[in-house]
Structure formats: C-alpha cells, structure tokens
Design a protein around this nucleic acid. Structure first.
Length: 287
DNA sequence: CCAAGGCCTGAATG
DNA sequence: ACATTCAGGCCTT
C-alpha cells in the first residue's frame, strides 16, 4: 500500500527544471528560489513543487496537472527506448501555454536555435511588452496581438528576427482580424486546427505542431524537427523509415499518421520524452 | 507531388 | 583570418 502510494505520487510529481528546459518555453529564468516565466499577459512564479503564484492571478492549468500521467505513460510506452526516456525524465510535462505567445514564439523559432529564439523574444518583449513589477522585480510581459499588429516592420526587425519579422507582423494581424481564433482552434480536431493554422505565413508543419501541442491541447501533435527525424532514424529506423534528407509536406503527414498508429493519442508526450533524452545526450544548452 | 535554392543571423567548423 | 555550414523550417520556383 505504501509502495503503491509512492508510485502514484511519482506520476503526479512535476520536474520543473526538466520541463522548462525541454524546448517548449523561452522566457523563463530562475531567480532566488523560484522559476519565473512570462506567459502572455501574465507572469508565473513557480516553486520546485510546481505551485504557481501568478501576477494576474489567473487560474488555469499551466502544468496540465489534470492529465492522467499514469494512463498517458502506459499508453505511450511501446518499446524500450521510450520506456527508458520516460524513466529518466519522469516528471517532464507538456505545458499549456498562452496561445498567442506560443504562436509567435514558434514562428520566430523556425530555422533558428534556442539561444537566438530566446534573444529575439526577449527583445520583442522589452520593446513592445508592458513593463511591470512583480515580487519587487521588473519584467516585461509578452506583447499582445494588437500591439504587434499595430507596430511597424522596422520595430519588429530591430529585435533581430530577420526575414521572420514580416511573418510575425502578418500573424499578429490574422489574430486581430479573427482569421485565427485560438478558442475555436482549441475546440476542433487536430487535423482541422492544423490546416487552419498553417494558413498563417511562416507556419509550416513543424511550427504548427508545436503550437498545437504546447498551447492548444492537441496531444496527438508530434513536431518533427531535425532532431526528431534523427531520433526516429536512430531508434525507429525499422518502423518509420524516411529516404530523403529534407522532408516534404506529404512525407511529414505520412510519418505523423504512422506515429499516431504506433504511439497512440498521447504521442505528443512521447515526442517530448524522446526529444529531451536525446538532447541531453548531446549536452545541448536550453536557456 | 517533389527537388532545389534562398533567406536573417551568429556560432561552429574547416 | 576567411569561407562554409549549420541552427529545433518555410516559401517560391
């Protein structure tokens, strides 16, 4: 009984450090004994056990604590590779981010790296986001869609986004004009949401999957970036084979279908565990 | 439907 | 030093 209880609590425990350092978020830092993170128009302060105090005092399940991790892990644990990743990084969670920030963040992420994405997003926040004080510390909130939509391409480009500047501006305008409605996207299926969000310039298959998985509750999204392709080639070459170097849209979709058939409806979690494990193996820096 | 090339930019590689 | 390649892709031709 006692052992059973401890096993149950293990599934519910969140490893904050691993979760923040898994390529999902970019505007987080540790100050004193807390992690602080920008989440749209809110700031989250989190202690090591995952308890949140927030600037706006919004109440929502950022850590997806209601996900049944025991069921999810059981569901995705199809082979020794994924079982090892889950075992090593138990406590790693998918986050439920504020959609607009997540949307812009992953448009900025394309063809880039974590250091630069972080640099770009910090610049954007400092330039266009509201400056606020929280816990006697200064922060910049993430700029809202209206502010970005009304800013100039030069302002955005001064944050170092390069050719992504125009994408970001147009993306924010699509949110303002309600062509992109996150509340609607949350309600529809993975397929439908993906088709809609890929109409945004700068949003292809991979970026779309990140947005869907990390902010729009699509746990069947499975972002296939260079790293995941490498991981699949290394551990799953017999299951998901890919001939060509660069992946086309159709190949991406076919691969996703096979992945869902294999890992099931919570495949997004499998992706996060595998990704984390392989990146750590290569001692990649996160923030 | 696929392949090739270009794209901002900074760090890593030769 | 200096050129080339790569980095958590996407778009156009």
């Amino acid at each position: 009984m006692k052992q059973l209880l401890s096993e149950m609590t293990d599934f519910n425990r969140i490893n904050l450090k691993n979760t923040i350092n898994s390529g999902q978020v970019f505007l987080w830092k540790k100050l004193d004994n807390y992690w602080y993170g920008i989440n749209g128009q809110d700031i989250l302060r989190v202690n090591d056990s995952g308890q949140i105090k927030s600037y706006q005092d919004y109440k929502f399940d950022f850590f997806r604590k209601k996900d049944n991790m025991e069921e999810i892990i059981q569901s995705i644990s199809k082979d020794k590779t994924i079982r090892l990743a889950v075992k090593k990084y138990l406590g790693l969670r998918i986050l439920r981010q504020e959609p607009f920030q997540c949307f812009i963040s992953f448009i900025v992420s394309s063809n880039s790296n974590i250091q630069k994405i972080k640099f770009n997003l910090e610049n954007l926040s400092e330039k266009l986001g509201k400056k606020v004080e929280f816990d006697k510390k200064e922060f910049h909130l993430f700029p809202d869609s209206k502010t970005i939509a009304n800013s100039t391409i030069e302002e955005i480009n001064s944050c170092g986004l390069g050719y992504r500047s125009k994408f970001v501006l147009d993306a924010a305008r699509m949110v303002e004009s309600k062509k992109i409605n996150f509340e609607y996207l949350k309600k529809c299926s993975y397929q439908e949401a993906k088709e809609i969000i890929q109409t945004v310039p700068g949003v292809g298959s991979k970026v779309a999957d990140c947005i869907l998985l990390f902010s729009l509750d699509k746990l069947d999204a499975f972002p296939l970036d260079r790293w995941m392709i490498r991981i699949l080639e290394k551990y799953y070459f017999d299951k998901f084979k890919l001939e060509t170097k660069s992946i086309t849209e159709k190949q991406y979709q076919d691969m996703h279908e096979k992945i869902i058939d294999y890992f099931g409806p919570f495949a997004g979690y499998a992706q996060q565990f595998l990704f984390k494990m392989e990146r750590e193996n290569y001692h990649k820096k996160w923030l």
